[in-house]
Amino acid sequence: MTEILSEKISRARAAISGTLIETPTLRLTSDRWRDVLPDISSGAVKLELFQQAGSFKARGAYLGISGLSAESRDKGVVAASGGNHAMAVAWAAQKLGVSAKIAIPQAADPIRIDGCRSTGAEVILCKDIVEAFAVMEESAAQEGRVMMHPFEGEHMTLGSATCGAEFVAAHPEIDMFIIPVGGGGMISGMSAAIKLARPDATVIGVEPFGADSMYRSFAAGKPVRLDKIATIADSLASPLAMPYSFSVTHRYADEIVRVEDDELLQAMRTYQDILKITAEPACAASLAALIGPLKNRAKGRHVGLIACGSNISMSRYQVLLKQK
């Protein structure tokens, strides 16, 4: 099993080479970090916000669409998302010459709606994410388009695994990785790749308290659906965990911790103050966990953070930061 997974990750890395960006990492060595970070031995952040389409999602979306049959490509793809996945699918479809239809809530950040349109995707504005998923399913049934799920599927996990493999290769000293969790597409792949290369490393996922489906799923030992979502981190606001991504995450990740929205806002400000990065809430989740619930446990460790994406308009960013 380990050998097969390793081969799949290697093939995935080859498939995206030259098209996706091997995003840079930055060591957290500036003196300005000393008053912020716990007493860690070293730290580094992988800047996946510089990825194609602005987030890690582009990796899995590209793998998924590039792996379609010629017949499926001719019919096109459809996705439902209010977040980074929408832009990733739209970008990947344009890159591969495939028609894309994106169902997106009308309340989504305008930068994401405009981003989808700019790549030539057909955008359907919906009342909410529930209606968006209904539109996606109808399009798949009536038009034969292939549904591109935002996190569930081997291609999404393998896309994230390429990110994890790059991070381990760039920083073999890291022994604690802190990874944002929405539905589980990122942490499933990253944790698998990390544990294959560094079995002794600690991999910890981080969710908002108001969208903690993976935390609750770990506690239950099976995928769990939430009754409601309440968080500013819309890119992490999955209402449920699903079988494939949950099973991979449960096998390779050590645990899931949770952070409050106020901790996300604090981490967003820290990225802006020190690195001048305009981080969306999900992008700041790893840092929020490090300076929050994991502060004591990270002492003396070599810590790896992931800045997973930053598709946020300045107007929404400013509104969020005024909350604290």
Rank of each mutant, 00 (worst) to 15 (best):
A15R: 13
P293C: 06
G164Y: 02
L226K: 00
G153V: 01
G60T: 04
M268K: 01
N296G: 14
A15K: 05
A161G: 08
M214N: 10
G164R: 06
G205C: 00
K127T: 11
R216G: 10
A44Q: 07
S99L: 15
K127L: 09
I111H: 09
R73L: 05
V146Y: 13
I204Q: 06
A100I: 03
L20A: 06
K322T: 09
A201G: 12
D175A: 09
E137D: 13
S17D: 15
W91A: 04
V303P: 01
T119W: 13
I102A: 03
F151Y: 10
P172H: 06
A132H: 08
L49A: 14
F50G: 14
G185K: 08
G183P: 02
I129H: 02
V259T: 12
N311V: 06
A103H: 02
D175E: 08
A161L: 08
T202V: 15
A14I: 13
R301I: 02
Y252H: 08
G182Y: 08
S69V: 04
G115N: 12
S247L: 09
M148P: 01
A307G: 13
F133W: 11
I129L: 07
A285Q: 04
A132D: 04
S286R: 07
I4M: 15
H85P: 07
F177P: 12
K324G: 15
A279N: 05
S81K: 01
G153K: 03
A282S: 03
K195C: 04
K8C: 15
V203Q: 05
E280S: 00
A219D: 14
L287R: 04
A289K: 06
K295Y: 07
I312C: 02
G210Q: 02
R11L: 10
L37G: 08
T270L: 15
G292A: 14
A134S: 00
I194V: 02
G67V: 14
T19K: 14
A93F: 06
L321M: 01
A197P: 12
E260T: 15
S55W: 03
S313F: 00
A70S: 10
I40P: 08
I229C: 05
A107E: 13
P223R: 08
C116T: 15
I124C: 11
A289H: 04
M148H: 11
G43H: 03
A141C: 12
L125I: 02
V224F: 02
V259W: 11
A192N: 04
N296F: 07
E207C: 01
M314S: 13
I256E: 07
S191G: 10
H302G: 10
G67K: 11
I9D: 03
V257H: 11
T162K: 09
L264S: 06
L68M: 07
V181I: 09
I312V: 02
